[in-house]
Design a protein around this nucleic acid. Sequence first.
DNA 1: TGTATTCAATACAGAACTGTATCCTACTCG
DNA 2: CGAGTAGGATACAGTTCTGTATTGAATACA
Lengths: 203, 203
Amino acid sequence: METPKRRRSNTRARLLEGALEVFAERGFHGASVEDICERAGFTRGAFYSNFASKDELVLALFQATTDRLLEQIEALLPELANQPGTLLDAVLGLLDEAAPDQRQWHLISTEFTLHALRDPEAAQALNTQRAMFRDSLTKLVEQITETSGLTLSVPAEQFVRLVIAVHEGARSQSLLEPRKLPPGELEHTFLPMVLEAVSRPSR
Amino acid sequence: METPKRRRSNTRARLLEGALEVFAERGFHGASVEDICERAGFTRGAFYSNFASKDELVLALFQATTDRLLEQIEALLPELANQPGTLLDAVLGLLDEAAPDQRQWHLISTEFTLHALRDPEAAQALNTQRAMFRDSLTKLVEQITETSGLTLSVPAEQFVRLVIAVHEGARSQSLLEPRKLPPGELEHTFLPMVLEAVSRPSR
DNA sequence: TGTATTCAATACAGAACTGTATCCTACTCG
DNA sequence: CGAGTAGGATACAGTTCTGTATTGAATACA
């Protein structure tokens, strides 16, 4: 039961997984195809049997992580929207739990971002991914503000953009100074401040 | 009058400048030593006569840009502190005018950050630079809040960290979507909101 | 059971890059 | 004006990486 096309997609998955790790450690350009294969437990033969080039792998990897992320979010959304807690909890919950390994995720997504800033095609792909992510978060925010009687002083999407900016900026700082800034601390300090700034109980 | 050691430091400078451009275009790993030399109008002979390796160049480049940045800030500070305008104006002024070419600066500093996240030594260097930058900004904020009768609801340094996070996060977003988000627009939207969140007239 | 097919390993050719060693040129200075 | 030197170009050797072509093994199928 583990043989026909299953095998292929399995090695593909392992290659993608290996690529994720190696890219996080050395960056796109810094990681050779052989590094990736070695990490995945294959040789280059397997690689070129599954991907035409490293660029194609990068693209596939982006698609895969994107799909997985959106999937996780879909799963998380109803839970966060309906369950107890405040807007803050929900937003933090989505931002935090969407990325299992903070550090690796940040490295990879920064790498993608950098890549996108230099390549319009990649920018396009990344932007639609980010737009979907923003939409999810926006919907969540709208739902919760409605049910909890809050009013935002700016449009929800603008608010979400701000939240994302703060989150990413804070994460960058805390990863750079892990001793002084425990992971998540900055975010959890900043976001309440921001939230308080733009939301007030609707009368 | 342009000959003894002047020549050397001149080609060094040109190499650094070329490196800055090429790194911005292709990233550290993506840029070969030869690319850099070509950009600067030299061959590899000149390079290895001035630097031991690409790593050393990166370090020197970081130092050079760091020095230049701090120098500019020193020059800007008194002007911003004493002249008219609000806290917001001053902060925005410092953040905006410190980086002449937004895009290139962002690419390079992101690249540095990524590098630092993987190399503790680089992290050390980057962190002391960022600490100095934060200190400047913190002093500026403290001065202005005093003279303008504002009180921050959090320590000034914490406030500055938040401002930097917002600034970097916003810049990243606007560079990714230049059509939808004109440069600086997001920052200029977000920062007032943040500022309002944590500052109030001291009674 | 034997044949065909699929997937990955191995072997190989070519390109790119790095770093060194040598050479050339243009100043400097006696 | 001539010897010495510094800075940079050129040539070269070694390494690493990519991509292709061939081979081998395991499975599907007749």
